[in-house]
Amino acid sequence: MEAGGIPTVVIGVHAFRDRLAAMRLPRTVITPHPMGRTLGAPKDDETQKQVILAALDLLETAQKPGKIIDLPGRYRL
């Protein structure tokens, strides 16, 4: 994507942090959530939104590839 001129940001769960980091992705946000619920629990609109906002901020602020943001907190229902 990036080689094709399209900036990207990846949101992944902490279980896959090592794998994602090894890929040296352009921009990565890691959430503390379980697999399959990357942005947060079902109907937890607020957490889902905060995760996306963190990803959008990273899209705008990253100046070089490889930046990883680890979001704090725990999976909450």
Binding site: E2, A22, M23, A62, K64
Partner: peptide, 14 residues
């Protein structure tokens, strides 16, 4: 780490 490891990546600023 998984099967795919890279040392660097292309990067396009916003």
């Amino acid at each position: 780490v998984g099967r795919f490891t890279y040392d660097d990546s292309p990067f396009t600023p916003l």
